[in-house]
Design a protein around this nucleic acid. Structure first.
Lengths: 189, 189
DNA sequence: GTCTATAAGGCGATAGAC
DNA sequence: GTCTATCGCCTTATAGAC
């Protein structure tokens, strides 16, 4: 339980605020109260709201990148999927969804650097899933209905949307449906 | 080209504003300027912003319901899919995405009546797709990878997410991937 | 680094004239 | 129905003391 610097606390709470309310749904005042500083102190670290969000989305993306990178690709595909889905399932049921999913709705309010980081985040997920499908393909007895890259886009989109739907509807069923397709597309399931 | 009443114009522009900027991303001022009235006139028709959004999401849902209802279920499944996807593809590439997709991100700012209407909207899509899959199933030579209702949730989620991704990335490829899965799951495709 | 104070404007909403 | 005027509050952002 390391003590976080003010700057680190600002990032942490910004991650939560965006994942709850979106870019236009939180203010410097909200953030200042959570961290216990005045709004002018936020401007010291992050001159504009765009600077703050850019740093938050970069941090979010870096954490996800590290997490995905740590999944051993020599494991059985089904186990890789389990590790991939674990934090997504854990996060479901809270009032927070994916940060990039939230910012996607606010995209007309965001700067190009933020958008570029978001696009990289999506591609990271899709590339990992594509690689998974490509490695799993030889182990299957039937071919995929669509090429691995397309399948990855569909599965990732269904997961992203399933997380949003879980918050709206209070049920995991759409997330589970996406997970079921992902599992069903793995060898011997 | 019928002349719209002020009330109708307010709804029309609200639909556009939400689909562009979301609930927290537009103001009475924005809307008033588009329609050419003062903000106090909006309050005459819609006392609170919540009243305005509720009416907008109800109108949006009613239009979609009418559109889907008009698809002849005795047509070949592939043709039904074509008609279902047509306005989604047309809308892609603009700066507007699905209104319910946008409001899903803003859900913590919305009233329960608005949320209930959103949930109904999602179920309407999923039920139509489920029915389509059930009718198409006997015509196929291989079974679905998951039951029709789950498949419907995954396909609808991928379409919703694909529309968002199209605006973020400027490419239709994720929408096309979802459409490809939908087509691939139809008989003789 | 953090604060107080403030700028300059936007927000949803209301009262009351016409 | 639509307006002017205004309320009370919130917003991002900056200047300058400590």
């Amino acid at each position: 339980m390391k003590t976080l610097s003010v700057r680190e606390q600002l990032i942490e709470h910004t991650l939560v605020l965006i994942r709850r309310r979106g870019f236009n749904g939180f203010s410097y005042r909200d953030l200042a109260e959570l961290v216990g500083v005045k709004t002018s102190s936020i401007h010291y670290y992050f001159p504009s709201k765009d600077d703050l969000v850019l740093e938050a989305v970069r941090e979010y993306s870096a954490r996800t990148h590290e997490r995905i990178r740590a999944i051993d690709t020599s494991l059985p595909p089904a186990e890789q999927v389990r590790q991939y889905l674990e934090p997504i399932r854990t996060g479901s049921g809270t009032d927070q969804v994916c940060l990039v999913g939230m910012l996607s709705a606010d995209v007309l309010s965001l700067s190009e650097p933020v958008r570029a980081t978001m696009r990289d985040y999506v591609r990271m997920h899709e590339q990992w899933l594509t690689g998974l499908f490509e490695r799993a393909q030889p182990l299957r007895d039937t071919p995929y209905p669509v090429p691995p890259a397309q399948l990855a886009q569909v599965v990732y989109g269904a997961l992203q949307s399933g997380l949003m739907a879980a918050r709206l509807s209070g049920t995991h069923e759409r997330l589970d449906a996406a997970a079921a397709v992902l599992a069903g597309v793995m060898p011997q399931s």
